[in-house]
Design a protein around this nucleic acid. Structure first.
Lengths: 262, 262
DNA sequence: AGGGATTGACGAACAGTGTTCGTGAACGGA
DNA sequence: TCCGTTCACGAACACTGTTCGTCAATCCCT
């Protein structure tokens, strides 16, 4: 499935980095060699590169995905990749965009638009979780690629179904995607640590870490940190899911409130 | 000014990495050599290392802060740093914590607690902005160092002044610091790109980029992206400040709402 | 005061990283 | 059939974080 379409091409194929800020858009796939049998080795393409990057990421984590590792998996050298991808940053954006395409876009229902937005957020987080570390590339993206545009369009539709102002809807989409990206990044860093600790030997008991932190908070001197020590339990209660759901409630309540009060 | 205090020491100094997840706490400064005149070259210390890291970061950006660069600025080799700092990740945490110590903690006033929280968030963002890229290390921190604890304590105090539930207050602090960290990271990535573009020649006109993106959104096919193309103006309106203020309003309205409805 | 042990400093090296250059071969169009 | 474009790729460059082994300076103890 080709991502390319002349509609999305702002810059011409000769130069990946036309704009001063390197805002990149997917290139048209190399048009020639449409039919006929392939050569001995299957041709390299953006799709194949992104595919193997995703595979590696899913099985070995973000840090294992280097240009060399991708090239090796494709049985070639790292230099070959640069004919199809501008650089690693560009590849990361393509990877993220491909992931974004996985999340389903619901048909807006004015009666439960907020629940639908929450579900989209949950789905997005779930998609990121499949590829630990990919989210690190999300945060600096202006949605110009297909996947991000699709998400933005879906989110905007839900916001409008909820009767939000245009301005609130637009900024809220920004805020929501920034937040879900941040959560994914945070989780991926912890996952990476657990992975590293696992490689180094000792198993990691998550509950044990939580208990340790709680005990530490409680042990703090009450004269300097009265609240942290007193609220140690509240601060260490709940797993990632609980906190995520809490944040979703806060964000959606807030969006409604701000939209109403203008 | 020493950060160390036996209160904060969970692990003993012999090993930086005791816990399976490498949750590190500042070590007690080397106690020996309390008085007497120094040798020819001033002794290395955690403080001096963090100081030069901050200097480098402020003047040349995060990517310029490598162990080698820090060592060079201190007129020594990279290996010398590892006697005082476990690794780069640890150093990053110390740097972030030092930055966090710069933000002022207000005296809680129940009449304007929400405005006080907003101000703390603004101050935190401003502090991060001084050191582009430092925020990249924030996101995976459990507040166990002095600076982070101080912030958490201040935030909790303001939340309690606003009458929030313990649970809401605790989770909200988490959410708020995650968000402000995410904004700082996002900005730093853009700043890095601008920096890189500047190094490569062409000046970057921010307004021009915005105009370009807006034009691109408007040019999208209305049958596939009706909302994005129609709301192009709303989506590209407002600078970072406007969006940040919007997010603060959303977050605080949401916190109030969630706390009231239980 | 002298000797031994501790400990910070540090040069060199290792295993990686992203990226570029120049060569060589395969292919489509004329 | 030949030309010129286009992709593949080996080698190398300039980095990165980190570790090892050594050296000299310092403190403590006798």
């Amino acid at each position: 499935m080709f991502v390319s379409s002349t509609v999305f091409v702002m810059e011409q194929s000769k130069s990946f980095r036309a704009g001063p800020l390197n805002i990149r858009v997917t290139l048209p796939a190399p048009g020639w060699r449409t039919g006929a049998a392939g050569p001995q080795r299957e041709r390299l393409s953006v799709e194949r590169i992104v595919d193997t990057a995703l595979d590696l990421m899913r099985s070995k984590g973000y840090d294992a995905v280097s240009m060399r590792a991708i090239a090796k998996a494709l049985e070639t050298g790292p230099a070959s990749l640069y004919a199809h991808v501008a650089n690693k940053e560009h590849l990361d954006q393509l990877v993220v965009d491909r992931i974004a395409q996985q999340v389903p876009i619901p048909e807006p229902d004015p009666d439960r638009w907020d629940e639908q937005i929450k579900q989209m957020m949950r789905d997005t987080l779930a998609a990121y979780r499949q590829y630990p570390g990919a989210a690190r590339a999300t945060m600096a993206i202006i949605p110009t690629e297909l996947g991000a545009l699709r998400s933005a369009e879906g989110m905007l539709a839900l916001c409008k179904a909820g009767g939000l102002t245009d301005q609130v809807a637009a900024w809220a989409c920004d805020l929501l995607s920034l937040y879900v990206g941040a959560v994914a990044v945070e989780e991926s860093i912890w996952a990476e640590r657990t992975r590293a600790a696992g490689r180094a030997g000792a198993e990691v008991d998550e509950q044990l870490v939580v208990d340790q932190v709680r005990a530490y908070f409680e042990s703090l001197p009450a004269d300097r940190f009265p609240l942290v020590s007193a609220m140690a339990v509240a601060m260490t209660t709940g797993d990632g899911e609980d906190r995520f759901e809490f944040a979703l409630s806060v964000l959606l309540s807030g969006m409604r409130a701000v939209s109403e009060q203008g």
